[in-house]
Design a protein around this nucleic acid. Sequence first.
DNA 1: CGTCTGGTTGATACGACTCAAATTTGGTGG
DNA 2: CCACCAAATTTGAGTCGTATCAACCAGACG
Lengths: 245, 245
Amino acid sequence: MGPALSLRLEAFTRLSQDDKAAIAELSKVSRVVAPRRDVIREGENPRYIHLMVDGWACRYKTLPDGRRQIVSFFVPGDFCDLNVYILKEMDHSVGAITRLSVADISRDDMDRLTASHPRVTQALWWEELVNVAIQREWTLNIGQRTAYERIAHLLVELFMRLRSVGLTQADSCDFPLTQTDLADATGLTAVHVNRTLQELRRDGLIELEKRRLRIPNLQKLMDVAMFNPNYLHLDHEGRHLDANE
Amino acid sequence: MGPALSLRLEAFTRLSQDDKAAIAELSKVSRVVAPRRDVIREGENPRYIHLMVDGWACRYKTLPDGRRQIVSFFVPGDFCDLNVYILKEMDHSVGAITRLSVADISRDDMDRLTASHPRVTQALWWEELVNVAIQREWTLNIGQRTAYERIAHLLVELFMRLRSVGLTQADSCDFPLTQTDLADATGLTAVHVNRTLQELRRDGLIELEKRRLRIPNLQKLMDVAMFNPNYLHLDHEGRHLDANE
DNA sequence: CGTCTGGTTGATACGACTCAAATTTGGTGG
DNA sequence: CCACCAAATTTGAGTCGTATCAACCAGACG
């Protein structure tokens, strides 16, 4: 689905009709990945840039003894991984959370796109820089926040990212992550995530069931999470420019 | 000092004499930052790209109540932060660990450099992608490893990064970080870092005193840290290509 | 010398983990 | 539409890794 995709990129630069057409051309879904299956695995040689067209996915890394850390989430509209440009070998895996539509783009196609559409290139790099900023925030989150704050922070982040591409309804959104996913992403155990979610519910900060998340009072949840949205850079100039004008 | 700088960039692409000259031109130190002082602070509007010419520095983020997380280290030879290209406002601070030589490069100068030296641009972006990879590894490190493994991992990473730019001597290197720095970087308390370092010493894995680190058996330390060097991408093709040939 | 920063030690507390089992939910096929 | 199974969630009891708090020590420095 182009919509979320374009919305996401246009958070950075306004794209021309031509830019959008070129993206749409490459965004043709080339395969569907079933929930919980991998898009690509650590150690593999990446031959394509994977563009997540629809669905949720995550990047994760594992230790030899099986411990697993989700290091980031792709939500619908998030674009792709440019790693193929440096990596001989993936240093992490990408796994589908939900049913996932992926467009595999060859390096050549991507080179052609960026060569003829500089604004797209710019938007891609901006997206990459925001991804690093998010990764830094996760380091802070896991390193310093308590379980309660940490989960609150992650929920706010995901909600705001979804909202920025129009995937929320008032104070709620689809939320396909299991408690085990949350545990792997926060460096906690699933049991402790469970108990902490109950606390958050008890405190009236969230409602979470049947893969739906509702945040009755976003500001209150942001406060307990000490959430500062600056790292998402949602206020970029792209929001105010338009290449078509 | 150009040497480490060029070495670092050349880990990615071989640079021509002309490329190197252009970098050297911009690398003229424009100021010296005293140890423990900030290069730039969260919330500020970045007007320059900061090129760390010599010395150690770190990026860090803080929470309103004072908790502090170092999210990455700059070691000598590490280049700079391209954040200025997206950020209206810094989402983190950069602080000097040692006396630090910094070249402040204006966006215009940087644009000129990259416009006329595509290989430099490429090298810069590669460096940025490696930085994300390191940031992901830190997420894994803090999220999943025990204090003992975690500190071991950080020490190995720093040693290997220093080695890749020729700043190690056999099995040792300068090591200006305090135990408090290590604590802020690993999400542990200084007290616990102290005890864990003692364990590592007792186990013969490290010697650390007077700002010198010695790793008698790197492989052994890598084993306890479950260190997989793939994320540093030190084996990039740049090592085998030369723009002058 | 006093002062300061960084390092070390001891005693105690608590947040998060482990292990184990029960319960609920969701999907699948008969 | 129900029976069944697997996955996800929940609960309980006990443990442990790491934090906290509070001194104390050593070297660097003015």
